[in-house]
Simulated assay, not measured.
Amino acid sequence: MRILVAFASRNGSTGEIAGRVAGRLRGAGRNVDVAEMGDGPEVSGYDAVVLGSAVHNQAWLPEASDFVSRHVSALSGLPLWLFSVGMPDGLPRLLRAKAKELQEKRILGLLGADVLEPRGHRLFSGVYLEGQLKGAAHFSFRLIGGRFGDFRDWAAIESWADGISQELAARSGTLPSQDQAGGSGREDV
């Protein structure tokens, strides 16, 4: 079984998450390729696809949206999982749920819910450094109580990847390796 893990990243955090997901899938004996969406990887020839993008202004990066549009036909026939990398954990607690809700709506809009039916979508927090925001945006983020830092939850990321591996194993009748932890793979934001 060949799996494509494709990502769009601005500052590297999403690429590192994609690499960790791919590593977990490889650890379960899967044949995995990792590629940046902007490099134009082809979807044909793969048995499953995992797509991830950084979130800027509550939307996937343009190269991720373009990738989905170019490959919608091929993606519609494959097991597909999505992840987004934003900053919900850098926001004040009162704003986190609303930010997650808005992101889910954006993803459904990106995919046109009638066209693609992903098996799961997860919103992960990434790395958000002070230098990434300038001027009024930096001031506004601080004013609402936003925090900068590395908010990636590697255990949650690995668990999600393990869930994908387990679902693929169930579909193909193969067992994942013994070092894979539990996870449903169908966790939605």
Rank of each mutant, 00 (worst) to 15 (best):
M1V: 13
A6T: 05
F7V: 03
S9N: 05
G12N: 09
S13N: 09
T14A: 02
T14K: 00
I17Y: 03
A18T: 01
G19D: 11
R20P: 00
R24M: 11
V32T: 03
D33K: 11
V34Y: 06
E36K: 11
D39Q: 13
E42A: 15
Y46C: 03
V50E: 02
N57D: 15
Q58T: 14
A59K: 15
P62F: 10
E63H: 05
A64Q: 06
S65D: 14
S65K: 15
L75P: 00
F83S: 02
M87K: 07
P88T: 07
P92Y: 08
R93D: 12
K98R: 15
K98L: 12
K98H: 13
E101A: 15
E104L: 13
K105M: 12
R106H: 14
L108E: 15
D114L: 07
E117F: 05
P118G: 04
H121K: 08
F124A: 00
S125W: 01
Q132F: 12
Q132A: 08
H138T: 03
F139E: 08
S140H: 09
R147M: 08
R152G: 04
I157S: 00
I164S: 03
T174Y: 07
G182W: 10
G182I: 09
S184G: 12
E187Y: 01
V189S: 12
